[in-house]
């Protein structure tokens, strides 16, 4: 219930209305959206019980490793009601053809696979917010100082998920496990997304904001 309360408000893509819709403009809009979402994501992380008591270094380590997984879970959850469209924001829904023309077809296909998994499970909002926090706590960052504190954070979240499933989804005793077993594909998808945006960054096709660039460069 705490995670539901601290869930951030919707963010809109707000594409620049003064320029025409080129491929690079779509990418610029997407990168700008990601940059603004990152600011929100960092402040959201601080509201996860136990996160703010970690050392600053460990907070940075978790965010630098897991930020794309958290962003992707958001896209995936928003896209659940849509057939074959990626809801990057309510005003930026991308379908196959548009993803193909901007060079994000590969990412689109992986995202659809992930969306299909969660759709089959009928992922609900409580599970979505818990999985997001788990993705952050379970980032497997190489630069963690206090492993015990991170383990404690993971245990608290795991317990919350188990408790929720025990009360709300009695019909399937394996549901919690099924949800956790989606995390490898989430990581794989996030790695693919980071590679895509690094490529776009290297090509110099779009101007990226500093925080997005910083996070892309931090994720080795």
């Amino acid at each position: 219930s705490h995670l539901l309360l601290v869930e951030p408000d919707k963010i809109f893509a707000m594409a620049d209305p003064t320029t025409s819709d080129t491929d690079d403009k779509v990418l610029t809009t997407l990168c700008d959206l990601a940059d603004r979402e990152l600011v929100v994501l960092i402040s959201w992380a601080k509201h996860i019980p136990g996160f703010s008591t970690l050392s600053l270094g460990d907070q940075m380590g978790l965010l630098q490793s897991a930020w794309m997984e958290v962003l992707i879970l958001g896209v995936v959850f928003r896209s659940l009601p849509y057939d074959e469209g990626l809801v990057y924001a309510d005003d930026l829904i991308m379908e196959r053809e548009q993803c193909r023309t901007v060079g994000l077809l590969d990412l689109y296909c992986t995202l659809l696979q992930l969306i299909a998994k969660y759709r089959k499970l009928q992922l609900d909002k409580e599970e979505f917010v818990t999985l997001k926090a788990m993705a952050l706590a379970n980032s497997d960052s190489m630069n963690i100082e206090n492993i015990e504190a991170i383990q404690n954070l993971q245990d608290i979240l795991h317990e919350a998920l188990q408790e929720y499933e025990k009360n709300r989804h009695l019909e399937d005793p394996h549901r919690g496990g099924k949800l956790l077993m989606t995390l490898p594909l989430l990581r794989q998808t996030a790695n693919k997304a980071v590679q895509c945006f690094r490529r776009i960054m290297a090509e110099g096709r779009v101007t990226m904001h500093k925080l997005f660039l910083e996070m892309l460069e931090a994720k080795v």
Binding site: S43, L56, G57, M60, L63, K210, E214, A218
Partner: peptide, 15 residues
């Protein structure tokens, strides 16, 4: 940490 100064600053922000 110098390389990640925006993240560092945002984490230290109290808001």
């Amino acid at each position: 940490k110098e390389k990640h100064k925006i993240l560092h600053r945002l984490l230290q922000d109290s808001t």
